[in-house]
């Protein structure tokens, strides 16, 4: 056992990459199953088998992704993840039960995606729902959507979208689209299309107009997720720029892909005074 004190975290190995791919495959397969078996007749009551398939499939994917990604994360990222989880929960409650159909419960996840990359973002999304389910277990089935949000946030940072901040809202809209597409079947199958707050009101509105359940829930998901992710991505980008460079440049992902604008040029006055409120 001759470890050096500064040994690197075990990075990617073929086995871990395989596990990660398997996890993504499990998400895709479960999702495909849910779409194909989407209940046409809601009158016969909630179908238990589809809900079980959803929970088992996404649960399996969660385990695989954890096993594949967690050991490869550098310690700086690992230390940031709990903070992001708490931010998700606290900022989500901050907005709380307003009648605007947004929840803002993924700002921390998106921030980690920006600072530490897609796989860290996906892990944060999964962990966030896992930890949140200690207080509110009804968020657990939506973990796959949270993982997709984190991964897409990391991907957009890597493509330089956060650097060109006028593109951030567009990335948010795209993510909102994906998140809604993932969340809607889960909301129908596991919770019978019941949602609380403004999303629930939208669903009730469409149901009152005589729409089908799947239709109404999908509409509700899109009307709440698109603006929500737009705001989330913008707020997270604003936070990333408000952080002192000492904090952001600690992340290898930020340095390597030059995620934030103005990172190369030194002596930019706006950067060193970016946090007047602190």
């Amino acid at each position: 056992m001759s470890h050096q004190l500064t040994v690197d975290a075990p990075r990617r190995s073929p086995l871990r990459t395989f596990l990660t791919i398997l996890g993504v495959a499990a998400v895709v397969a479960t999702y495909a199953f849910l779409i194909v078996s989407e209940p046409a007749d809601v009158v016969n009551g909630p179908s238990a088998s589809s809900a079980l398939v959803a929970l088992v499939g996404f649960g399996l994917a969660m385990v695989l992704l954890f096993a594949g990604i967690l050991p490869t994360l550098p310690t700086t990222t690992l230390a940031l993840i709990p903070v992001a989880l708490v931010l998700n929960i606290v900022l989500g409650q901050f907005v709380g039960s307003t009648l605007v159909p947004i929840y803002l419960d993924s700002i921390g996840t998106v921030l980690v995606g920006y600072l530490a990359g897609p796989s860290a973002g996906a892990t944060t999304g999964l962990l966030s729902n896992l930890v949140w389910s200690f207080f509110n277990p009804s968020v657990l089935p939506f973990a796959a959507g949270a993982a997709a949000i984190g991964a897409l946030a990391g991907l957009s940072a890597r493509l330089g979208i956060v650097r060109r901040f006028y593109l951030v809202p567009i990335a948010g809209l795209v993510t909102g689209f994906v998140a809604a597409a993932i969340a809607a079947p889960i909301a129908v199958i596991v919770f019978g299309g019941t949602a609380t707050g403004a999303t629930g009101a939208i669903i009730a509105l469409f149901r009152a107009a005589g729409e089908g359940l799947v239709q109404s829930v999908t509409t509700g998901a899109f009307t709440s997720d698109l603006p929500d992710k737009l705001v989330t991505f913008s707020v997270a980008a604003a936070l990333a720029y408000a952080l002192p460079r000492r904090s952001t440049q600690r992340f290898e992902f930020v340095r390597r892909y030059r995620v934030l604008a103005g990172a190369k040029r030194t002596g930019e006055p706006a950067d060193s005074k970016a946090a007047p409120a602190a």
């Binding site: 690992l78 230390a79 940031l80 931010l87 936070l239 952080l243 600690r250």
Partner: peptide, 21 residues
């Protein structure tokens, strides 16, 4: 929110070397 986030992220950055050690 901004002071809270700054404080938390900064603390996380300080915790990382400690965990590493």
């Amino acid at each position: 929110v901004v002071p809270l986030v700054l404080q938390l992220v900064d603390e996380a950055g300080e915790r990382a070397p400690a965990l590493e050690a």
